[in-house]
Design a protein around this nucleic acid. Structure first.
Lengths: 349, 349
DNA sequence: CTGAAAGCGCTTACAG
DNA sequence: CTGAAAGCGCTTACAG
């Protein structure tokens, strides 16, 4: 429950104050504020002076009440507990969106919670937001269905199954996985372990989880490799450690490990160290992950990576474009993660 | 420039629609919406039914226009380029604030930019926000002076010099540094290197930079240690690498290194590896930094750490409390970072 | 080029 | 317990 607010005791100066000070009518001030045509140069000067002198600033909500738009965008990451966001959403996802929104005079609202369909719709209906960027998109995401049905503007960072008419930007995880295995095979590796997203994510049809698994199956088939994989519980260092130990207990012959997350890769390297394996001499590690982190480990991680800042910046940009030009055709962008070879991989011996 | 919006073609259902459907007046609906007293049970039921049936949701801005509050909080991190936030602000700072705001029906706006005094004041004057949480606070922060002067509600995550009447939550960096050195001295280390915040940060009186340096001087004095330190340029892995090499070039006798940032600590470990030093056998590394990261390196980092989620959650909570009870006395909280001993430190040999 | 009037959707006294 | 009236601060036709 929100407690009662004290009344605006010293409410700011209003457009009426400016009008009086400049000796003109309120609509005239409004016209000048909004750069409308047909205002006498002399009047404009006088009004602008009054505005400056009084320190007048238009009331945000009053404008919106007339204008219709809230000038606010939401970035939604669905999660039961905000604590869990850690390690999955990194800062650049948020700063990228905030930067793009700011540059186009939008507010950026970061939502971390499990929305209900009602709450979600209400955000639009009550005019709290004009558009939404969706993170952690499932193949059959109810948010997508609901927003599409109600014709509320949104952009996916990720993608669902039916993409007809939808705007999104996503990473091409499937091809990243395939390339990762090809890269290792070219280095002479044949027994390669794979640590991938939680099984629960795949079961709930989370895009990257499904597609990376498909990529994995493709790679196995293409190179005729034996499957050695674990779907880890979360994407934590601990999962990387336990997953790696399990893989190596069963398959001591592994000479390389691919992971779908940078924290898991860190765990993998720890587990290898615990077993007295040197990376990359005894076992290579390749991650699909975030650049900055991959660069900070010892040895540094060879990784397929992308700029999360760029991804969410572009998603937000697409959102503002869509709001300004509702008739614009859907934009669909697939980003290919880039391979950066660092110290954690080498040719099989 | 914001492009023109299309008019609200299919604007949602309004309070008037509900009133008509229920056969009552608009104020009556409003009373029910706001849980005012004195409404006949029977009327209430009828109206609530109409609300449900029509899927009515109150218009956000219209409410604000009358009520005064924007129900929006801003979290401000001042930075020339949003790219630079990386590695300094971690996700939990943002999710913690978002969670606390959400729980109290506030919107959370994440601002990453160099605000001008005008832009900052305008956010309040135009009623875009009710309050602000300040990150990266300098001892003589102009934002603090300005907001204090204009009596706009804010909370610091950090602290400035004159704390009279101000609400903040901050980490006790000074004591963390002192404790870090004491810990190492107790382990028998006498030649300890120190990698700290950029000199530019200290010059611009950024709180942690100033206080950690003071803590360092205190520690040197207390334990009669020789000074071996570098103020690194940014807080990146690369800075940690170069800083560590410089320290060791000059002082090969170092047996331990303390860093003020987790990325710098990662760089330190890389540099030591490059020199063929083992951590912790040949040199201990102790960081002031973030738990999750410290846990992921190999070897894992002994560190003084804190929960950034908790810190920004509490800051945001204090903000909402202050807005609800403007007369509440200022809350001032100093958090002591906690030492977690992991693998990167051991007794001097 | 400028002003009087109406209205955005809601809430708050003020009368009944 | 409920409604008619006024108003929050602004913008948009509509007349001049």
């Amino acid at each position: 429950m929100i407690k009662g607010k004290p009344k605006n005791l010293k409410q700011g100066v209003t457009i009426a104050d400016v009008a009086k000070a400049a000796g003109v009518s309120v609509p005239t001030v409004s016209r000048i504020l909004n750069n409308k045509e047909y205002v006498a140069e002399e009047t404009r000067d006088r009004v602008n002076q009054a505005i400056k002198q009084l320190g007048y600033v238009p009331h945000f909500q009053a404008r919106q009440l007339r204008g219709g738009a809230s000038q606010t965008l939401a970035l939604h990451y669905p999660v039961e507990s905000p604590h869990l966001v850690r390690g999955v959403v990194e800062t650049p996802y948020i700063t990228g969106a905030a930067a793009a929104a700011g540059e186009h005079d939008y507010f950026l609202n970061f939502l971390v919670s499990q929305l209900t369909p009602d709450t979600l719709l209400n955000m639009f209906r009550s005019n709290q937001i004009d558009g939404m960027m969706l993170l952690q998109v499932r193949l059959d995401d109810w948010r997508v269905d609901l927003l599409r049905e109600n014709e509320h503007p949104f952009v996916m960072i990720g993608r669902c199954a039916d993409l007809q008419g939808l705007t999104f930007i996503d990473l091409d995880f499937e091809s990243a996985i395939i390339s990762a295995f090809s890269h290792l095979v070219e280095l002479g590796h044949r027994e390669i372990g794979f640590l991938t997203y939680p099984e629960s994510w795949r079961n709930s049809k989370l895009g990257p989880a499904v597609r990376s698994f498909e990529g994995y199956e493709h790679a196995l088939h293409q190179h005729k490799l034996h499957p050695h994989y674990r779907e880890v519980a979360f994407s934590s260092v601990e999962d990387g450690i336990s997953g790696t130990h399990e893989l190596l207990d069963e398959n001591p012959q592994l000479t390389a490990i691919v992971t779908c997350n940078h924290m898991v890769a860190a765990g993998s390297m720890k587990a290898l160290a615990q077993r007295g394996y040197r990376v990359p001499e005894d076992c290579s590690v390749l991650a699909i992950g975030f650049g900055e982190f991959a660069n900070g480990t010892t040895p540094s991680l060879t990784a397929f990576e992308w700029s999360s800042y760029e991804v969410s910046y572009r998603a937000t940009l697409m959102m503002t474009e869509k709001l300004n030009e509702p008739l614009l055709p859907a934009q669909q962008i697939l980003v290919k993660p880039k391979l950066i070879v660092r110290e954690s991989t080498q040719a099989a011996t």
